[in-house]
């Protein structure tokens, strides 16, 4: 959270992004930013038939534990989807129990601070409270931070982007050592589905620009800048229609799935299947794949499947 940290981080990010652009090989250079330099056991872990908390426990265990991603003394930012002022049953926001368990794992791995925020659509204080996430995070010892305050956002350049060449990004993302992206899988009126890639819209300030400038391209472009350490997709309850806000609880089905991956495109592709659609019908997933951000071809991935 210190200014020095911020400048250093921003400079590093720009440098890496810049070199990436220069040398073209996106994925290998981006991997330098990741904490895990040793090869990962699986590209993707999928868990089903459990409650959110035990599903995450087994997923993270199969990836070698949270210690692979969070080193002692590091600061962590967890970014769930808290966009709407609705109760957990409506599944418009990430499951509070899952967020809580992730925060607990971070502290067990030795994290210094765990911050949680989202740039909400509805009134942020109401979203934080009524989603149940504020209570969940606080009870795990984490810190809820506001995501709707413009002065906490700082402009970054996004080299290689087609439409979204710059954006104002929340300082928690810029300053934290580890970034865990925890979207909820749901239907989305404009993006078709909203999962991990789309969830990153909640760490920028001006979202209208995205809507004005080819939403799908902007979603993919932003993934060039922001690469979460880990993506955890909550597909425990899935809103299958009327998304992303939902009208009633009848929009929600209980599917009890959880997907975890470092590859944001891969996890979106897999989650799209859980949703009941084909990844190649979702423009931002296809664009992200084509830009080399990740791999949407599930057959080419090593997937760990766990049924509880």
């Amino acid at each position: 959270m210190e200014r020095r940290d911020f400048i250093r981080k921003t400079a590093a990010a720009t440098l890496v992004a810049g070199t990436t652009l220069k040398f073209g090989n996106l994925s290998s250079l981006w991997a330098l930013e990741s904490n895990s330099s040793d090869s990962r056991p699986y590209d993707l872990v999928a868990v089903r038939n459990g409650e959110p908390e035990p599903m995450f426990d087994s997923a993270i265990e199969s990836l070698g534990g949270m210690g692979r991603y969070v080193k002692p003394g590091q600061s962590v930012v967890v970014k769930p989807n808290i966009g709407w002022d609705v109760t957990p049953e409506k599944a418009a926001n990430t499951h509070p129990g899952l967020v809580k368990r992730i925060v607990e794992h971070c502290f067990e791995a030795g994290a210094k601070d765990v911050f949680v925020f989202d740039h909400t659509c509805d009134l942020w204080t109401a979203c934080y409270t009524n989603s149940g996430i504020e209570d969940a995070v606080k009870s795990a010892g984490g810190t809820m931070m506001p995501g709707n305050v413009e002065r906490m956002y700082h402009e970054v350049q996004i080299p290689g982007a087609v439409r979204l060449k710059k954006a104002k990004v929340h300082e928690l993302i810029l300053n934290s050592d580890v970034f865990i992206n925890v979207p909820v899988l749901k239907h989305h009126a404009s993006a078709r589905v909203t999962i991990a890639m789309k969830n990153l819209m909640g760490i920028v300030y001006d979202r209208r620009f995205w809507h004005r400038n080819d939403l799908h391209q902007c979603i993919a472009d932003f993934c060039l800048f922001s690469k979460p350490t880990l993506n955890v997709v909550d597909a425990y309850r899935v809103m299958t229609r009327n998304g992303p806000r939902g009208v009633s609880e009848a929009d929600v089905v209980l599917t009890r799935n959880l997907l975890v991956s470092e590859d944001i495109v891969a996890v979106d592709a897999a989650a799209t299947r859980v949703f009941g659609s084909e990844p190649d019908t979702i423009p931002h997933i296809v664009t992200g794949h084509d830009m080399g951000i990740g791999n949407m071809n599930l057959r080419e991935l090593s997937i760990k499947r766990i049924s509880l």
Binding site: A189, S190, H216, G243, R245, V247, P283
Partner: peptide
Amino acid sequence: IVRTDLTDCGACSEHCPTKAVEM
């Protein structure tokens, strides 16, 4: 936007609490 730029947008429908705006 969808008509003028031929790109997806749907911000209106996203926010609608009753889905009086449907895509």
